[in-house]
């Protein structure tokens, strides 16, 4: 690859108490890349996404987005921990879709999507509503604008969640096990939306997922994580059909059997 990575991670460490969730974690993600992260639960996949979204603070290491520090900033020629203002500026580059949707229950689908563009990006009410309506139509919910989350199925809720994150137009979008909380028959509709996004946008997408076949189909690269480290990072073809490590093969056999 000739282009500079959009996200560059070096030596990232995260501990919860004495438990090391991420150990000297390194990763480069290219602009527009669709990268899936797979691995057993507790391997640190979600924690990595949460640190990228600034929901968790790392203990050590650096993350750069388009060459600018996420958790660090330059002040007077020195590198210092990021302040609130810096974090706010950096967050405009990143968006996230959550496993448990985290929709706002007191707002309609449209309000869920249009609120942040209006409040944070300063769009007018009409502009924000128009953007919200376009996005909800794009995820197939054009007829549910005025529905509250409790009137929607799990799959519909997650599609609102995706539209809400898209409305902020981030460069890097994080998908944290977005189908794990869904009933099996509803997984397909959400994957359909993701597939379309993967094919039709140049947004950088980072997916933590347990849907192996889907990861294989849409990803440019797949990372296998275990015990807080990336053990293998390669094309889907190589990871799924010809993994280098025995550990990867073991994991894939266990998952694909079931």
């Amino acid at each position: 690859m000739s282009t500079a990575p959009i996200v560059s991670v070096r030596g990232l460490c995260k501990r919860f108490g004495t438990h090391e969730v991420l150990k000297e974690f390194d990763m480069d993600i290219n602009p527009g890349e669709k990268l899936s992260i797979i691995g057993p639960s507790g391997s640190g996949k979600s924690t990595f996404l949460r640190i990228l979204m600034t929901l968790e603070k790392p203990n050590a290491g650096t993350i750069e987005i388009e060459g600018k520090g996420l958790w660090h900033m330059e002040r007077g020629g020195k590198t210092v921990p990021a302040d609130k203002k810096h974090l706010r500026a950096m967050r405009t580059q990143v968006g996230m879709v959550f496993q448990h949707f985290n929709l706002f229950p007191h707002m309609t689908a449209l309000q869920n999507v249009a609120m942040a563009p209006k409040q944070v990006l300063g769009l007018t009410r009409d502009e924000a509503n128009e953007r919200g309506q376009d996005l909800l139509e794009r995820v197939g919910l054009g007829d549910k604008l005025d529905a509250h989350p409790n009137q929607l199925s799990g799959g519909q809720k997650q599609r609102v969640g995706i539209a809400r994150a898209l409305a902020m137009q981030p460069k890097v979008m994080l998908f944290d096990e977005v189908t794990s909380a869904l009933d099996p028959e509803l997984v397909g509709e959400v994957l359909g939306v993701l597939r379309e996004l993967a094919h039709e946008t140049d947004m950088t997408m980072l997916l933590v997922t347990h849907e192996m076949r889907f990861a294989q189909e849409i990803s440019d690269r797949v990372a296998f994580m275990d015990h807080g480290q990336v053990l293998e990072l390669d094309t889907p073809a190589n990871i799924f059909t010809n993994p280098t490590l025995a550990r990867t093969r073991e994991f894939l056999n266990a998952v694909l059997e079931s």
């Binding site: 967050r91 990143v94 968006g95 944070v120 902020m168």
Partner: peptide, 14 residues
């Protein structure tokens, strides 16, 4: 629920 404030952070609300 804690997820509500996490969603707010992800949407960059003050």
């Amino acid at each position: 629920d804690k997820g509500q404030s996490e969603a707010c952070t992800a949407l960059n609300l003050t």
